[in-house]
Amino acid sequence: MAFTTELERDSALNLSQAAVGCEFQVKQLDGPGCKQLREIGFCEEMRVRKVSNGRNLVCAMCGTRLALSRELAEQVLVTAV
């Protein structure tokens, strides 16, 4: 499990709720879209920055920009760094 403490779990939010322009660390992928997300490169511990919001939102990771649907973003749990 990627969460080390209860406190960390409580402060986690999903990428869809996260604020634009801030940087986050992926804590957990949870949901039916997991496989799709892992394939394109999401994984635990990775850093992402949210670039924009919307029905499909954009985030930056490892120097690339990814557009993903809100449903998928809801399956990515992140904590602020």
């Binding site: 879209g33 799709q36 997300l37 394109i40 499909n56 954009v58 690339t64 920009r65 990814l66 557009a67 993903l68 649907s69 449903e71 998928l72």
Partner: peptide, 10 residues
């Protein structure tokens, strides 16, 4: 419908 996931190349 599968979820939208797309790389935006520079």
């Amino acid at each position: 419908a599968p979820h939208f996931l797309l790389e935006l190349p520079p």
